[in-house]
């Protein structure tokens, strides 16, 4: 899941300053789950912004709230067409994809990010999320016992551990466990320690040129429901 965190309030205040009518738009999927941009956070941001204005005593902005199931799919964005009428700007509490999808769909509307999209990760407990995947496009988890060194090793090295771990923890971030020691332990349990003896060549970044696109469907010509060529 994508994990994000809400931007500092002063950043958001600065973004909306020139606008009169502002829509605060939540996302009902990833940012809801990571407590950054669901309905409750939208409401909280709304209260905080109103309070900021009341305290600053400057001209009252008109805020409204809405939350979509997902902001990263164009079909869901269609439900917003009426809601954004007369709105001067939108603060999206979705991940960067959602913000861009909005900007793409509503070409004349200023759209601002209300959260910093942080990483792909998981909750380790309530209110704590850890990064687990770098979306590198070249997954090696089959060799590393299901533990990603790209993400979880501070240095991202492919042939670890380095010489630095102290008592199983990383020398750079002493709070973090050394990914390569975790990998070793896990391979040991799986009886696959021979994988540790292998040399992993540097990653080939060539096939991961950005932006990436995945085409899942077969490249057929568009046809109507009866198989006729429509155009």
């Amino acid at each position: 899941m994508i994990v994000a965190e809400q931007k500092p309030l002063e950043d958001i205040i600065r973004m909306v300053r020139p606008y009169k009518k502002v829509l605060l738009l939540g996302c009902g999927t990833c940012t809801t789950v990571c407590n950054a941009g669901g309905e409750t956070e939208v409401a909280f941001l709304h209260d905080a912004l109103r309070m900021a204005e009341a305290r600053a005593g400057d001209g009252r902005r008109e805020y409204s709230e809405a939350t979509l199931k997902r902001q990263c799919d164009p079909e869901f964005l269609e439900h917003l067409t009426e809601r954004v009428e007369g709105v001067d700007a939108v603060v999206s509490l979705a991940c960067g994809t959602g913000v861009q999808a909005l900007a793409e769909r509503f070409a004349d509307l200023p759209v601002f990010p209300g959260v910093n999209t942080s990483f792909i990760g998981m909750a380790v407990e309530w209110g704590v999320w850890d990064e687990r995947c770098a979306a590198c496009g070249d997954c090696r988890l089959e060799d590393t016992g299901g533990i990603c060194p790209i993400t979880r090793c501070t240095k991202g090295i492919l042939n670890g551990p380095c010489a630095g771990p102290k008592k199983g923890h990383c020398e750079v971030s002493p709070d973090m466990e050394c990914a390569w020691i975790l990998i070793y332990r896990r391979l040991e349990r799986l009886g696959q320690l021979e994988r540790m003896r292998r040399y992993y060549p540097p990653r080939n970044f060539r096939p991961i040129s950005r932006p990436r696109r995945i085409v899942g469907k077969a490249g057929l010509e568009a046809r109507g429901s009866h198989g006729d060529v429509t155009a």
């Binding site: 009902g28 309905e39 439900h79």
Partner: peptide, 10 residues
């Protein structure tokens, strides 16, 4: 189904 919830906190 309308997926937009307008300030329906609860």
């Amino acid at each position: 189904m309308n997926t937009v919830a307008v300030r329906a906190r609860r």
